[in-house]
């Protein structure tokens, strides 16, 4: 299993220093996720879930240890190459959607494609397909302020999958939504997971266990199979 892991972390540590004090939300963490797995990461607030996700996405850098994704040592890439790597390999979904308010749903979803060598027509076709997949074909010209929270998150998911990245990372994507919208988002993620993507979902939501292939708990910087 270790050999064909899509995500492979070894001795992963992220330390924050404030004066003489040092905290390690991630401490000597090992993680293996096979390609195509839907992994749910749970843990109390402040346990380091976002920090781990940022390390996996190449948004943050570890203080020590290794992150390998699809055979690439992400922690060794230069800032410039890391940005290019993210553009091709990662779809990131945020709790608060993080849509660009001055762009329409269509334009938000198109953003990742602007970093790929695609014609305008190809981009258009892909954006339409992605918005179709999240059920928002009729909201393409809407600005984020004209959408509900659940719709905004679906646009954000379309933006995260439009360039078809092998890795999808979601940081409490339902944390700000009502129950019904949350269920819809979880269902959506599950259907995306069935298409062979590797997904890491950070959540408080106990129902996540139902949609995920595996659930891990983050505790004192390490991962456990069951809550401590």
């Amino acid at each position: 299993m270790t050999l064909d892991s899509f995500i492979r972390c070894r001795g992963l540590t992220r330390e924050y220093r404030r004066g003489p004090e040092a905290i390690r939300p991630i401490d000597q963490l090992d993680l293996d996720v096979p390609a195509g797995e839907f992994l749910a990461l749970m843990g109390p607030s402040g346990s380091g879930k976002s920090t781990l996700l940022h390390l996996l996405a190449g948004v943050d850098r570890p203080t020590a240890g290794r992150v390998e994704i699809g055979g690439v040592a992400v922690n060794e890439l230069s800032r410039h190459r890391l940005a290019a790597w993210r553009a091709r390999n990662v779809g990131f979904i945020f709790q608060l959607y993080h849509l660009v308010p001055s762009l329409t749903a269509f334009e938000n979803v198109e953003l990742p494609l602007l970093l790929a060598p695609l014609s305008r027509r190809e981009r258009r076709a892909r954006v339409e397909a992605a918005l179709e997949a999240v059920g928002l074909s009729d909201r393409m010209r809407h600005f984020p302020r004209e959408l509900s929270g659940g719709q905004e998150q679906r646009v954000a998911i379309a933006r995260a999958i439009v360039h078809d990245p092998p890795l999808l990372l979601a940081d409490e994507p339902t944390g700000d939504l009502d129950r019904r919208s949350a269920t819809a988002i979880l269902d959506l993620l599950r259907s995306l997971g069935r298409r062979g993507r590797t997904i890491v979902l950070v959540t408080h939501d106990p129902r996540a266990a139902e949609v995920a292939d595996r659930v891990l708990h983050l505790d004192k910087g390490r991962l456990l199979e069951a809550p401590a």
Partner: peptide, 13 residues
């Protein structure tokens, strides 16, 4: 700042 962070996360240099 957050929006710019998001754009960078998407891969914009």
């Amino acid at each position: 700042v957050r929006e710019v962070g998001t754009l960078q996360t998407l891969g914009f240099p």
